[in-house]
Design a protein around this nucleic acid. Sequence first.
DNA 1: AATGAATGAGCCTTCATTCAT
DNA 2: GATGAATGAAGGCTCATTCAT
Lengths: 206, 206, 206, 206
Amino acid sequence: MADDTRERLLRAATEVFAEKGYAAATVREICTRADANVALINYYFGDKLALYEQVLRDVVAADPARAPGLLGASPEEGLRVIIGTMLEKASEARGNSSLRYRLMMHEFSHPSEGTVRMLEITMRPVYDKLRTLVSAISGLPATHDHVRLCVHSLLGQVAHFAHSGPIMEALWPEMKLTAEQRKMVAEHIAGSMLVYLRETSPAAHL
Amino acid sequence: MADDTRERLLRAATEVFAEKGYAAATVREICTRADANVALINYYFGDKLALYEQVLRDVVAADPARAPGLLGASPEEGLRVIIGTMLEKASEARGNSSLRYRLMMHEFSHPSEGTVRMLEITMRPVYDKLRTLVSAISGLPATHDHVRLCVHSLLGQVAHFAHSGPIMEALWPEMKLTAEQRKMVAEHIAGSMLVYLRETSPAAHL
Amino acid sequence: MADDTRERLLRAATEVFAEKGYAAATVREICTRADANVALINYYFGDKLALYEQVLRDVVAADPARAPGLLGASPEEGLRVIIGTMLEKASEARGNSSLRYRLMMHEFSHPSEGTVRMLEITMRPVYDKLRTLVSAISGLPATHDHVRLCVHSLLGQVAHFAHSGPIMEALWPEMKLTAEQRKMVAEHIAGSMLVYLRETSPAAHL
Amino acid sequence: MADDTRERLLRAATEVFAEKGYAAATVREICTRADANVALINYYFGDKLALYEQVLRDVVAADPARAPGLLGASPEEGLRVIIGTMLEKASEARGNSSLRYRLMMHEFSHPSEGTVRMLEITMRPVYDKLRTLVSAISGLPATHDHVRLCVHSLLGQVAHFAHSGPIMEALWPEMKLTAEQRKMVAEHIAGSMLVYLRETSPAAHL
DNA sequence: AATGAATGAGCCTTCATTCAT
DNA sequence: GATGAATGAAGGCTCATTCAT
């Protein structure tokens, strides 16, 4: 029952923090939602901030970036797969990923002490994988500015399509990132990058 | 003197809301920073929420997106200019744009009633301008999915480079969006898009 | 009315802290007793600790050690007067002095950061005055160990008679430090010291 | 093992109560320090207050005042020995005596029902012994005010030198009651009293 | 005899808000 | 228009205590 309660508290906290943000979230609501006593947050986590950090850590731990099926594929195929996966994971409605995003938005707009370290853990694997792929495709070293710019372009686009709900709703209401649309977007992002890389890679000038 | 105080309150409120978010911002800090009495927020605006809404309204009203110098330029040139301008505005350290962004981040992560409408007002002009340009370059109608995808790709990239401070710090610490780097990034975004559009436009297949 | 409330809070706080000690005292009781809102402690003093320190400072400020009538008197007479005064001030029933003592007992048994500094301010004047007198009587310099020992003996005896209520009640119930008894005690303390000093002073050996 | 745990709890409680006072002491810290479960205090003692009372009872029971080596000595020598012993016991840094004192300070500043009785038990033996000695030296009956005054003077001085840490630190920082200093102080207290008694005893006037 | 999860009360503090002036 | 004292509600946290095991 103990672990169960702790688990319920974590789940409730994730929800409430995602919905209201750290400041607006109240310990009492979290406990109520978890059907637990107020004092248990102190008992299990220490205080509200420690709970928040635990939530962030858990959410990060559920790393969505370990895309399978990359082995043996060509770099071009790898790029397509990883971008498709990111979009897919990111747009799982109402699931952990949604909460994940909202929590990250909070962290982005009000970076806390641990934000950078958290991002380092979360993003680094995808980032490096993308750099390897782009490097392989372009023929440039992974440390080259061109490679980095391209990778950030990819990240930026994925983030935008996956996470800017309100913007999309305002500017392109039909885009709801359905499975079909997701496929189209992924192909657009990966495809345009591949076109660009092909055109600008040193090899292109042979 | 009355309008002056009201103005000071608004300015202070914009700052504090941007720095702390709605919930974490306190009426007292706003008043202190505005060098005004605590009771004046209620006196002038009714309550904290009303003040927040007024701040949002003002921030939106100060539309920073009207890029000058676009007249007469070729669509390609226009694209370059508008993207350069967006990046520039967005990276103005302590200016209105910075506050603007942080407020928007809040709105994004906790969309309120007015968020969509606010975005509609803020983003629409840039969005439509970009569509016109991309349409002109690609030869496709502005309503075409391809055009929209490209425009969102542009927005996504700009947003990413301009606003994901913590991500950048974690993944690419050297990228500080200095004037020089801004130029490089703008050229990268606009350039890659132009390459892509050239390659995929119907005209390319003639 | 403002200063009035602040004053009431301070008075109530002095009482409650003296009665219960810092830890056991509750902000709520202080406010209730002062007929004031709970939030006013924060408003006027910051927090409970700051209020406590203010109370200590006030209590100390009411310095009971400035004995009048010392001018022109012989050192021997001065000693008698100052000891009498200390006993008198210290035994004013139920007055500020009583609270003062109880607060000091708290400070002594659980010295806080400011205790030493507080004592420095409170005790130093009496201490130095006593050293001057003893020095004059004994013919030894005020820095001599003998002088210091004697002065501390005096302080210790006064403190004991004035403040060890429970001990007295247990061991010598009749000693209630009435005006008459006070006179006797003062004469005992000062008298015995004078005898001792006379016997041990260098001059005695001439 | 049961008694062992109970014992550990008592020892830990004595320490914590002495260090923090009743109110500021927490059941959890006591249990942690005793390496015991939180619930055991209630199990063994009923509640926190009952534990405190038990601690007081135990501390009182361990009477430290039975000075040895008094038999056969002259009254003058006896006085010197008992005062030396009191000072020594009182200044044992981490021993029972130190805890004892701090607990007593608490009881003094917030006399509880049992305080007087406790003191009666603790102090009475020393008190009566001192009266006997002073009576023998002075030639006055042990019930004489003069004897009582002298005995209280002795107690007051010992208490002051032994226990007023903060005062000493403020007024006479060099006085740390080292073994050497303790000897000096004991000689000062006993010596000055003997001088005084010799001078004022009826025998002196023969 | 001992554990550790769970409880409920209460504490200090903070906040937005109001009111008399 | 503006002030500053005052309010009441609520928030986070801590504590002694209990209960099932």
